[in-house]
Design a protein around this nucleic acid. Sequence first.
DNA 1: CCAATTTAAGACCATTCGGTCTATATATCT
DNA 2: AGATATATAGACCGAATGGTCTTAAATTGG
Lengths: 204, 204
Amino acid sequence: MRSQSPVQIPRGRPRTFDTEAAVERAMNVFWSRGYHATALPDLLRATKLSRGSLYAAFGDKHSLFLRALDRYIADAIDRMDVEFAPEREPVDGLRAYFAGYVERNSGANGRRGCLLVATAMELAGRDAEVDRRIGSFFRAMEARLVDALSRAKAAGRLADGVEPASAARIIVCFVEGMRVVGKTAPARMISQATVDALLDRFIR
Amino acid sequence: MRSQSPVQIPRGRPRTFDTEAAVERAMNVFWSRGYHATALPDLLRATKLSRGSLYAAFGDKHSLFLRALDRYIADAIDRMDVEFAPEREPVDGLRAYFAGYVERNSGANGRRGCLLVATAMELAGRDAEVDRRIGSFFRAMEARLVDALSRAKAAGRLADGVEPASAARIIVCFVEGMRVVGKTAPARMISQATVDALLDRFIR
DNA sequence: CCAATTTAAGACCATTCGGTCTATATATCT
DNA sequence: AGATATATAGACCGAATGGTCTTAAATTGG
């Protein structure tokens, strides 16, 4: 039985910057500008890293981008897992989920857009690593919606003729479309009324 | 009264290439690659123009892009004006409109994406000319949907409680979201079933 | 102290970027 | 013929690109 961790403790100066914080700062840059429009100096400024440190820690721009995208996706999944938690009323979960999109779509948040949607449009179909991530995110979102809608149906809260599977696919398209239309920064009231009207078609 | 056209007839060699055809070829490149990822050589290859001719005819890359975007938008509006023609049954128009999105979203068409959505995500909020075009397109689309839905309502074809205004906004988000999800190239059958399920919530 | 390692700063690299310009051929007018 | 205009091909430009490397300071463990 090993009592010692097998990882070697390096002897030199330890890393002094927070890798995850750097990924988050990089994510914010890619989020605001997109992949191609983000230049190295933008990332260096945001992460406050030197070129050498950034390349040593992350390899290259593309690898750093994938780390940032993974972080963005993980945050989105975590949010959904709170909203659609099993102990919560599924209809309440749906409302919270939509409320999040209203929030993210209003004013400056909306104008900033969505890293995932922007990446899908900019890189999907030309970058296999991106394809995998985008595809699995949409599947994960759809699965959580199917689950919540199924529970709502079991509780008799779904309107007549609503199928969880097709309703989930409708909702995925709808919320991703909100992120596109959100680039024109619609008023929060309008977004709220729109999601309410959609929910009204599904919920009893 | 003038019997002559006021435009000067130039005396030199006339233009030998088709400007609109060049715009269309450029549009296809921007459509496939996005604005930033499209380099001058890509445009020269596609238009079969020399650098000199391209710059003389269109000014610069950005101006050519706007011409291409205008062309793309005009095509989309023309399509809607056919689908939602006043002499047509509005419900049939809605079905044709959705059928177009199913078509554009399937397989290679879907993977290619949508120039308008890609442009919204890539440039909106950072390019005032783009902002104007994206905003006015969404308004034009919404207005046509409101009109068709209002006529459907007057004909008693709308489900109970469906408001043309909010339904139109829902549909705008939904179809633009289809273009995002379409980057993962969903099966045509799935897209068709999804739009059918949505229409089923609105139409009697 | 010494070896090991990370740090920041920035020089440096080849390549590509969007854009201009020159040279030359071609086509149409008076 | 001569003037005018457009075409192509490609040289050329400065700036910016992503990426590598060197130097020297800093910080740890042995």
